[in-house]
Design a protein around this nucleic acid. Structure first.
Lengths: 204, 204, 204, 204
DNA sequence: CATGAATGAGTATTCATTCAT
DNA sequence: AATGAATGAATACTCATTCAT
């Protein structure tokens, strides 16, 4: 279960760093950030602790590495996908689909993100990395809401920014909640759709 | 900052336990659950570490004590207030008001709750204490939504359970978010009101 | 199993001391001298630790109390029984019988004695209490051997003191050994009898 | 008295382990198993406590290490020496000589063995290591007695197993007794010889 | 790059003992 | 006599980090 995977003796520095980040992520999922031990990471990567410190000089740097690694993946999964050409309703559906995809295929991303956000409250460096990404996410959703209000897809009285907060908060708290089944997610999405749609618009 | 408060030499066991729980809560807010040290708690209460262990035999028991202490307060603040006699809209306003009150006056309750929920994922005992309370909260909100749908205050197509999840998720993620000012909270509440109200109802 | 037995609230100081000594002995058998905790003793007696310290001011004094309590019983069981009127062979049989009786009925006496003897090596006070008793035992056995040599019951070339050491060492090491069944004890006694008897004497 | 001996900064793991075992043995002789402290061992070896734990992960493992180290020496000293070619009487003399040699040159072996045997009663692992060695010793002595009975060197009615128990018990209890001088040991050996020899055999 | 050995500063917990009531 | 509360000094063990090779 915690057997070293590495079979190669020497890897390029970058490969090693990625391996370290992935091992750290897996361990954070298992034991939380507070239970993360450099020795466990080294063991899982299949290297000596001193070697780990050669590649990543301190635990602080290690957590930064993990944060960046996470954020890269989070960005690729959930935002930064150009959708300007899609209708607001289609963009909303993409948000739902992206989140579900992340939840299904990269559920550890959400778990680790959750830990990092909690720690960001006390860690300036993590905060500086994570908050902008979350802000970006909120602004993308707020934008699509603004567009949908303008073209009549969504409620005319919808306030894009708090609505974005509401949508993201609902999805995130769902995924960290007690019963995050696909069926329940679909029920939540349906409710969110109804919460923002224009009741007087012709159905699309 | 870490000055001992207690000046009394001898206190009854229960008083000491409360003092310990409060000191622990304050320290969790400052340094997180992972940064919580028994020595720091003892110092803040103004007692010897051995005395701390006399009252609370282990760190595990300490965290349970904090959890129960928190939950008691959380319950008193946010739920368990009989409101059956109020209209659904009034009950909803009370939910908003309660949350804001907790956020204003007991902001540490939210911070510590957040830490505990994160830890609950890996700690059976904390989970057993916290999850039922959160479930109760969700069911109370879902109930008021169901009532409001029945009496026409809220959207006829509103699905009470995901709507409750949405409302709670929105408020919680707001309070843990980057800019939790009263103005922003009011903006969020306004959006939530519009998201659930019956667009065809006569305004109350 | 570790339930307090005491039902009386107040006992005379001496009764309490006896109860404490007995509880301590039982705990030494279970966990060894090194595992003996004053709290455990107090719990078993059914009193508070502070009360224990009222009666027995220190752990050192406690061990002395146990030692004296043990020695009293050991003396009563195994030596100090006037047998001058018996023949050497009868006295020898009494030694065997006494030891078996102690082993059968007071097996904890042997276990605790063994612990105390080990500790006596580093504890002047215990040494001063225990060694004279053991010396007395050896001298009693040596005496009966000397008598038996004189009257022709035992080997004429038997050297009483080392023979006493041999007999006592054999019985004690048997009782602390791997398979101390009554049958094996009988086999050992038989061998000891043959080892000391006069091969040229008429059988009695 | 507790001066660090080691002056070398870095040693191979095996050398360190041996140094640790030896330091632990010396400390057990001084203060007993119950008074053995990891800090004292580290100090005597001249290393940090953390370094001690690097080589020997727990106190339990440390005691196992000491046990194995002791047993190795005990075996080398006292048993496992092929003597099939010697006469039973010669073998018996070798037993006496081996024990005296151990007592003279490695008196700490006997002291530590005594502590370990006492602890073996409550420690499965130590028991599993020590008891077989003692059993082996008994069986070797029983064997030489059986041979001596067969060839007429020893009493025809000598029962080898209890006789072995008697001989070993006598020697061990002598060595742990109050006056273990060489002269007394010789007296004991003489008595043991007389106790087992064949009174009707021609002297060899 | 890699590693075995080493370490300083902690970390929760234990225990005999004391004190005020 | 008895006790709940308190404590100083220890105790085994941990962890990120460093260093010589």
């Amino acid at each position: 279960m915690t057997m070293p995977i590495a079979t190669v003796k020497r890897e390029s520095g970058d490969d090693r760093k990625v391996a370290i980040a992935l091992a750290a992520r897996a361990l954070i999922v298992e034991k939380g950030l507070e239970g993360l031990r450099t020795r466990d990471i080294a063991e899982r990567v299949g290297i000596n602790i001193a070697t780990l410190h050669y590649h990543v000089p301190s635990k602080e740097a290690l957590i930064e590495l993990v944060t960046e690694n996470m954020i890269t993946e989070f960005r690729a999964q959930s935002i930064n996908r150009p959708r300007a050409h899609l209708s607001p309703n289609e963009q909303l559906e993409h948000e739902f689909a992206d989140f579900q995809e992340m939840y299904d295929e990269k559920s550890d991303v959400l778990a680790v993100m959750s830990e990092l956000i909690e720690r960001a409250r006390r860690d300036e460096i993590i905060r500086a990395t994570i908050l902008p990404v979350l802000a970006k996410w909120r602004s993308i959703v707020a934008n699509l809401f603004a567009l949908g209000v303008a073209d009549g897809s969504f409620r005319p009285d919808l306030d894009p920014e708090p609505a974005a907060q509401m949508l993201i908060g609902a999805m995130v708290s769902f995924s960290r909640g007690p019963d995050p089944t696909p069926e329940n997610f679909e029920r939540l999405c349906a409710e969110l759709r109804r919460a923002v749609r224009n009741p007087f618009a012709s159905r699309n």
